[in-house]
């Protein structure tokens, strides 16, 4: 067990992610820009639009804020997971893989790093949205939303690692951007309520793990959710465990050339 879970290695993998994150200031600004514009322009633009299924008494910006937090968590954590590919491209993956550290610890360190950086971005967007007038139900809501943020991030870092472990180089990256990230984001109910949608869309939304993440965040932050919060939590937890498991399994089997 001591060898399977190597705390020092997990720490140093995490430390590396943090250093790289804080050194890439322009990248942080870049990744915060899109959610910020969503909040500023979409939030303002649709201020007076009533979507069918929107709970009464809720402004669009209040509704949108948790969705945009879900969006940045999705982008940030998938990118963090897929950074395995960049390590492969720049050769650093060899250095990691040849060390005696168990693959499980390497994956845990990566997930911890990815979750931390995603969480920082999620919290920043939360603060920005509060600054822009989005209402929050209370401090307990904020704290419990952190639980959802962690689960969303960990799950998608795992998915990112799984995808990156199966890819040989970075050429497929834009494919993933367009065929994985965008559908997950758009189907999650981040931008509009799920109520009153056609059945085929609802079905797809129910398959999308981010749906439960966004719904959970909404439940915590504005006190209104489509599912029971416990249901959101349990489904996300399963998603998270399965993804981390698959990510670790596929990473274990990856070859480095």
């Amino acid at each position: 067990m001591a060898q399977l879970i190597n705390l020092e290695a997990i720490y140093v993998m995490w430390l590396r992610e943090m250093k790289r994150f804080f050194r890439a200031k322009s990248r942080i600004a870049g990744s915060l820009a899109m959610p910020f514009f969503f909040l500023a322009f979409l939030g303002t633009g649709f201020m007076n639009v009533r979507f069918s299924g929107m709970p009464p008494g809720v402004n669009y910006i209040d509704f949108l804020a948790p969705g945009v937090i879900g969006m940045i968590l999705l982008f940030a954590s998938l990118t963090a997971g897929i950074s395995v590919l960049w390590d492969r491209e720049f050769g650093f993956l060899k250095e990691i893989m040849v060390t005696p550290v168990s693959r499980v610890s390497i994956v845990l360190g990566r997930i911890l790093g990815g979750v931390s950086t995603a969480l920082i971005q999620g919290i920043l967007i939360l603060l920005i949205s509060i600054g822009m007038g989005s209402k929050i139900v209370g401090i307990f809501g904020v704290l419990s939303s952190l639980v959802f943020m962690v689960l969303i991030s960990a799950g998608f870092v795992g998915l990112g690692i799984a995808i990156a472990s199966r890819m040989k180089d970075i050429h497929g990256f834009s494919l993933i951007m367009n065929f994985v990230i965008m559908p997950i984001f758009l189907l999650s109910g981040a931008l509009f309520p799920l109520e009153g949608l056609p059945t085929w869309l609802i079905t797809l939304a129910y398959i999308d793990p981010l749906t439960y993440g966004v719904d959970g965040l909404r439940g915590c932050l504005i006190g209104i959710s489509h599912f029971n919060l416990l249901v959101d939590f349990l489904i996300l937890l399963c998603f998270c465990i399965v993804m981390v498991g698959i990510g670790a399994y596929l990473f274990e089997k990856t070859e480095v050339d």
Binding site: N6, E8, A9, Y11, V12, R16, K19, R20, R23, A24, F90, G91, F92, K94, E95, I96, V98, T99, P100, V101
Partner: peptide
């Protein structure tokens, strides 16, 4: 039991020289 110096680049360019060494040392306990 082993150590290796690779033919192709295998450094983390976003870390300093010392941080690269420190990473290695900690991975090897």
């Amino acid at each position: 039991c082993i150590g290796i110096i690779f033919q192709d680049p295998s450094l983390d360019n976003r870390l300093t020289g010392k941080e690269n060494l420190d990473f290695h040392a900690r991975m090897y306990g």
